[in-house]
């Protein structure tokens, strides 16, 4: 496939992913509202917000890093999406995964968050800093079970390449890592709850404490870019989990179904549980999820 064509497909993919991300967040708000006995906003509320923010007539900023923060955020989300093959074997949907393996993806996940944190911190609002402190703390905590799961998968697949891991799961639903490495799956999906930051792990933007958390000071087009980045970031993560545990996908419909299921896992949990305190959240991830992860790794080592 020629490079310009690939580029075009990627741009389309990015736009679709953003749209999908916005839609899915709309669905969730609706679901949550219904659970809480409210009517809730329409499912397309995300698009309305994005449009409104883009056409606002005033915008303020606090300095260079503040200005760049949404860019970091969006670039992080889009870049992550581009590093993950959506459908292995379809060149148009493999994106730029030749750039690097799972390790690169794992580290690139932090690119956007850290960049945005820098800008948010420059705003000088204490709520931003507190939110970042909480976010980083939680992020490191869920990284441990996630890393253990990844190591278990990579060791059994003999590769850090996402494509290789997907290929190793072909041949029926029971070959999925979800079933062949159940302990790793438990660890990773518990970590996924933290990544998505729904309750009980919504400590970063904890509404009653630090109203919006890090993005407190962002407005108009800055905020719109951040929203877009966040949407595509969420989609990229779902695709990653799909590739890692649900055997990847062979077509876009499969992608939609699988990612939707993955996402709803965290929505279900979020609808039921109240929020943790920060240290409770950290301890949670270092507890059973980690035990499951270690067990998964040990199992892989024994099966060698």
């Amino acid at each position: 496939m020629s490079f310009p064509l690939k580029l075009m497909w990627s741009v389309i993919g990015i736009l679709v992913a953003i749209a999908y991300g916005l839609l899915i967040s709309g669905i969730i708000r609706k679901v949550m509202a219904r659970i809480q006995g409210r009517i809730g906003p329409p499912v397309y509320q995300g698009f309305i917000d994005l449009g409104k923010l883009l056409v606002l007539r005033t915008a303020t900023h606090h300095g260079v890093m503040f200005y760049l923060a949404p860019i970091f955020r969006a670039a992080g989300g889009i870049g992550l999406y581009l590093l993950i093959p959506v459908v292995v074997g379809v060149p148009a949907l493999e994106n730029f995964s030749f750039t690097g393996d799972l390790l690169l993806v794992m580290y690139f996940m932090f690119f956007g968050s850290l960049g945005m944190a820098l800008g948010a911190a420059e705003s000088g609002h204490p709520h931003s800093s507190i939110g970042i402190s909480r976010g980083l703390s939680q992020m490191t905590a869920f990284e441990l079970p996630f890393a253990l799961a990844v190591v278990a998968l990579a060791a059994s697949a003999g590769s850090f390449s996402i494509s290789d891991i997907v290929m190793a799961q072909q041949g029926g639903i029971l070959h999925w890592n979800l079933f062949t490495h159940p302990l790793a799956a438990i660890a990773a999906f518990l970590a996924f709850l933290g990544m998505n930051m729904y309750a009980p792990f919504n400590i970063v933007g904890a509404p009653q404490e630090i109203p919006a958390g890090p993005p407190t000071e962002f407005n108009s087009s800055f905020l719109s870019l951040m929203m877009a980045g966040r949407s595509i970031f969420a989609v990229a993560k779902m695709v990653l989990f799909m590739d890692l545990f649900l055997g990847g996908a062979t077509n876009l419909l499969e992608v939609l179904v699988k990612t939707f299921l993955i996402y709803f896992w965290s929505v279900f949990v979020g609808a039921v549980f109240p929020r943790f305190r920060t240290e409770q959240s950290i301890r949670f991830f270092l507890g059973w999820p980690t035990v499951a992860g270690v067990a998964a790794v040990l199992l892989v080592m024994l099966n060698r």
Binding site: L54, V55, L56, R57, T58, A59, T60, H61, H62, G63, Y67, P70, I71, S123, G124, H125, T216, E217, S220, S221, F222, S224, L225
Partner: peptide, 19 residues
């Protein structure tokens, strides 16, 4: 995109925050 889309952002002082 950020420089062209939307209005020209105005720089505000460090204490110009949502409080």
């Amino acid at each position: 995109f950020l420089l062209t889309a939307g209005p020209r952002a105005k720089k505000v002082g460090p204490l110009d925050i949502v409080y």
